[in-house]
């Protein structure tokens, strides 16, 4: 069944027709040609498709597009302000926080969303005190970034990049 819908992606508004079966990820990649979010597993098991969905980091491979009519999506490409890279993206470059680059847009969106979650005081699995505030040490960064797999093994540099931005 085809459905007409709207998506707002990286500041632009798109009318598009999708199959009800089309995921948000495929709507972006195959219908709109927006390929910054990547398909690594298509089952919520790798995080490569992470974007900011209505302000929060979210995977897009298990979201049906039709259920997100009029959603606001920011991809890693949309994080940049013109020529100026987002500080997290800049830090990934500075710290070589990637190699093949395929998981990278998802990592960066995830990091941006994660920093907001820390700002809001959300605890994590490794937080010492669930009821208290959060100090974003390396262990916290690692845990909070664990929904983004990287097969090249850039984790150590990803942590360094995020640590620098958080400081």
């Amino acid at each position: 069944m085809d459905v007409e819908m709207t998506l707002r992606v990286d500041g632009a508004r798109y009318r598009l027709v999708v199959d009800t079966r089309t995921t948000l990820l495929d709507a972006l990649r195959e219908r709109l040609g927006i390929t910054s979010p990547k398909k690594g597993c298509d089952h919520g098991q790798c995080g490569a498709c992470t974007v900011l969905l209505d302000g929060r980091r979210a995977t897009t491979c298990l979201a049906l597009a039709v259920a997100h009519d009029d959603a606001e999506i920011i991809t890693a490409n949309g994080l940049a302000a013109g020529e100026e890279l987002h500080p997290v993206a800049r830090a990934f470059l500075d710290h070589d926080g990637f190699q093949c680059g395929y998981c990278t847009p998802g990592q960066i969106c995830s990091a941006v969303g994660m920093l907001d979650e820390v700002e809001a005081g959300w605890p994590s699995h490794v937080s010492e005190e669930l009821a208290g505030g959060v100090e974003l040490d390396d262990e916290e960064i690692r845990e909070r970034m664990s929904g983004n797999l990287c097969r090249c093994g850039a984790y150590a540099n990803i942590v360094a990049a995020i640590r620098e931005v958080a400081r």
Binding site: R29, T35, A76, N77, G101, Y102, P105
Partner: peptide
């Protein structure tokens, strides 16, 4: 690097 951190570097399917 820049193309990769923005996700604009085209991989095969893209």
């Amino acid at each position: 690097g820049r193309a990769k951190v923005t996700g604009t570097a085209p991989y095969a399917f893209e």
